[in-house]
Design a protein around this nucleic acid. Structure first.
Length: 270
DNA sequence: AGTCGCGCCTGGCGGC
DNA sequence: TGCCGCCAGGCGCGAC
């Protein structure tokens, strides 16, 4: 499941191949994604040049003269750079074909991803309410502490809310709360300022590290399966329910919070 | 307004 | 072997 580090790794992976390149075709084999792919996209990007490749939260944004092509990878989506003419498989739903004989192929078995359009000057509804980027200075303890006052929902669900901060999915929410020593069930409004200082630091650290590691797999990402690694062997709690805590050796506890698997240590997280 | 839970979709897995 | 049922999850949305 692509989280922010995987999306940023993907952005860095495709950027050198498509930046300033001209689109010669936009092929939609299956428009049924999370939302239907708008039909007008073809006419808006063919024969237009990519002006930049950026990211907002987990959305990749390819800027054209008339607007931004928005790509969300959902949980099983990926992009690959391939030579023109590469045969498409069952789940290869969209190709963005370029004049430099390369294509960007969007593959998504579960079709939770999306390909949308944001006209210049009109913020897309799905981007309008997004919170700050976690790796910028705007995301700090003061911000998170103030935003959490009087909030009763659990801290884990709070940091996974995209209006609060973008890009913190289930894996990194579990990991950062473990590293910060905070019980994921604690109401967001009852977490102290010093503990938010620690949490903000750990969220940034864990995302930063994952992006750094993602960068090292760029070669694989471009050639083979298109999936940046998750470095599962380096995760402290996610996927390790009932295994001993790496710090105190108590068995890790696994519960469901808001339909999401949550793993934490009752000894280390208070 | 804030919180909660549903459902989209399909590959992979365990059980029989 | 083959079939069935269940699970994973990002995230918008409807309901309270």
């Amino acid at each position: 499941m692509p989280e922010l580090p995987e999306v940023e790794t993907t952005r860095r992976g495709i950027e050198p191949h498509v930046d300033q390149q001209r689109v010669i075709d936009f092929v939609v084999r299956d428009a049924r994604l999370r939302w239907p792919i708008p039909k007008e996209i073809h006419g808006l990007i063919v024969n237009q040049q990519v002006a930049s490749v950026s990211r907002r939260g987990k959305y990749l944004l390819l800027r054209f003269a008339l607007g931004d092509l928005m790509i969300h990878l959902g949980m099983s989506g990926s992009l690959r750079v391939l030579p023109i003419g590469t045969p498409a498989g069952k789940h290869d739903h969209v190709d963005l074909v370029f004049a430099n004989d390369k294509l960007i192929r969007f593959t998504d078995p579960r079709r939770f991803g999306s390909v949308l359009w944001q006209p210049i000057g009109v913020e897309h509804k799905l981007l309008a309410k997004l919170g700050p980027e976690p790796l910028t200075d705007r995301f700090d303890a003061d911000y998170l502490y103030n935003a959490s006052r009087k909030r009763t929902l659990a801290i884990k669900q709070f940091i996974m809310t995209s209006e609060v901060v973008v890009g913190v999915g289930n894996i990194y929410a579990n990991e950062s709360l473990f590293r910060a020593g905070i019980d994921p069930r604690r109401p967001a409004g009852k977490v102290s300022k010093p503990r938010y200082e620690r949490l903000v630091h750990e969220i940034k650290a864990v995302l930063d590290y994952a992006i750094t590691r993602g960068g090292t797999t760029l070669r694989d990402f471009l050639s083979s399966d298109g999936k940046p690694g998750y470095f599962a062997q380096e995760l402290s709690v996610y996927g390790r329910g009932s295994e001993p805590c790496t710090v105190c050796k108590k068995p890790l506890k696994e519960i469901r919070m808001g339909q999401r698997t949550t793993v934490f240590c009752t000894g280390c997280q208070k």
